[in-house]
Amino acid sequence: MKRIMIDREKCDGCLNCTIACISAHQEGSNFYTADLTGKTADSRNKIYFKEKEGYFPIFCRHCDEPECVMSCMSGALSKDSISGLVNYDADKCGSCLMCVMNCPYGVMKPDQTNTKMIKCDFCQDLTEGPSCVKACPKEAITVQEV
């Protein structure tokens, strides 16, 4: 399967990946027009910063044994046996938040209304792959076969 590999040393905290993710999930928006403050301004990735230690880019791992899927009681989260991706079907989601509780890496979060989950979809509908990866000027995140 493919995974977004992270080289934390290269990250410069510019948050381009964050804007890219928000924009990719706002119909018709681009880097110029992405709404970064509204109700849909949710990024699936998260960059932490610690003084002295630098940046900690967090991107969904589409785990081999995904805890989020294990905790999903509605069938909304599933691991695709062919692509290996952990997919989320918002229509099925019952908003129980157990995936948020169980992702050991704190990747998952609810949307701003706490009704649906914000989950990396690997930008599967885009031929060029994940938008965050494309937007990273430092190649700190790259898609690789694992």
Partner: peptide, 9 residues
């Protein structure tokens, strides 16, 4: 604002 852009810094 805790994550600062490294390019800016």
């Amino acid at each position: 604002q805790s994550v600062k852009c490294g390019f800016g810094l």
